[in-house]
Amino acid sequence: MAETLEIRWHGRGGQGTVTAAKVFADACLSGGRYVQAFPEYGPERSGAPLRAYNRVSSKELRMHCPVLRPNIVAVVDATLLDGIDVTEGTPDDAVFIINSSRDPKELREKLKAKPTQKVFTVDATKIAIECFGRPMPNSPMVGVLAKVSGIVSLDVILEDVKKSFGKKFSQKIIDGNLEAVKRGYEEVREG
């Protein structure tokens, strides 16, 4: 991992993207790391494109502005790919994680990703529907991020989801989300 890991999330209002960034930051606290999680605040509307950001570092994080050169780009809604250039500012070794049922190779072409950049896909919406009956792709996406970034273990992420969701949801929904995180972690494909 680079000294500071910077993540940019692309999602739509109502998909739990901001919650995903928060859960991931919280899980990364372990090991004495510094974390940030923040959305770009626009008019908050369900379905509108939004961005959120994470920074994780062993050093104190002093930068207080959007992530401009993300190491990881997480796309929670693949329909955004038609209207937004999610590769903006990405370095040559950037990693893309896209919620899509399509083959990662196909998306690599669509993104025009450089050969040195990695592209992963996961059908997070399908996993979410199967696990807890709602098209909320954020939990599987957090699982994928844990796997791809390699900076936090599946167990720590699961523990954190349990803690974050425990205050708000029923046991059934929590269990479904935990299963969804696990399946995201396991079912991600590289292309």
Binding site: K22, R33, Q36, A37
Partner: peptide, 12 residues
């Protein structure tokens, strides 16, 4: 403290 930049951002 700065609105949103600090008030609404999560930090350690």
């Amino acid at each position: 403290l700065d609105g949103f930049i600090i008030s609404h951002s999560i930090e350690r």
